[in-house]
């Protein structure tokens, strides 16, 4: 019968070294991890055995109201003696160009937005989902409905009561282009203080010469959201 060869002490030492390494690694890991967890559990005095209820109270209210909800520019038409291909009306200054007005209208018009809540709000303007999708939809009757590409609506806002808005107000930002619509921030932080809680919103309307005759109506949606600082 063949004799089995003895396992040398060297092999035993190597195995011992491996074991020692693994054990040391385990111990170090335990100490490091448990040490970092100790602080987390120091404040824990007990745990709920059933269910817990958290009560949350919102102490402020959000609200906006609007005065002058309709800007009516009367009726008119493109002045064919112009060569621009479009007329424009600026309702903030009561100015117009290449437009012949046929019914009395001051051309000055704005929507007045008031913060009627008790918290500071962010106010945006957008053409709502059920409203016009682009300026050609508004002025030519259908989406991308004009032959020209100059139809556009820009929005501008300014304080109605001094110190109402903190942050940058838009200066004729595009809200409807000839092929798209955008959400425009009118006021990043509108105060709720009674003496300074109001902004005015006006529009610059670029009417293409190929816009068809008829009544034009566009609904803009103003949205107020709490500013939680």
């Amino acid at each position: 019968m063949k004799k089995q060869k003895d396992i040398s002490n060297k092999t035993i030492m190597a195995l011992l070294a491996v074991t020692l390494g693994i054990t040391l690694l385990g111990t170090t890991l335990s100490i490091v991890k448990l040490n970092s967890l100790r602080d987390t559990y120091l404040f824990l005095t007990g745990a709920a055995t059933t269910t817990a209820t958290t009560q949350l109270t919102i102490s402020g209210t959000t609200g906006i109201t609007m005065h002058n909800s309709t800007i009516n520019l009367g009726s008119g038409y493109y002045n064919t003696s112009c060569t621009t291909g479009f007329a424009w009306i600026n309702t903030s200054a009561g100015q117009y160009n290449c437009w012949i007005n046929s019914t009395p209208s001051s051309f000055i018009g704005h929507h007045t937005i008031n913060n009627s809540g008790t918290t500071v709000i962010n106010v945006t303007a957008a053409s709502g989902a059920s409203s016009k999708r682009d300026a050609e939809h508004f002025l030519c009757g259908s989406i991308d409905g004009c032959a020209s590409t100059v139809a556009a609506i820009n929005v501008t806002a300014f304080n109605n009561l001094a110190g109402s808005c903190t942050g940058t107000l838009p200066n004729f930002a595009v809200i409807l282009s000839n092929s798209s619509n955008f959400t425009v921030t009118l006021c990043p932080e509108l105060s709720s203080a009674i003496a300074s809680n109001s902004i005015n919103v006006s529009y610059y309307i670029q009417i293409p010469s190929d816009a068809g005759t008829g009544a034009k109506s566009w609904t803009v949606t103003y949205e107020a959201t709490d500013v939680v600082g």
Binding site: T70, G76, Y77, T80, Q95, N101, T103, S106, S217, A224
Partner: peptide, 26 residues
């Protein structure tokens, strides 16, 4: 969030149907 809606309206008429003078600032 709270919403309110505002309207912008006007009419485009044909030049033949109107001869009244314009107002506002040209």
């Amino acid at each position: 969030p709270q919403n309110v809606g505002g309207k912008v309206t006007f009419s485009i008429v044909s030049p033949e149907s109107s001869s009244k003078p314009s107002e506002g600032v040209q």
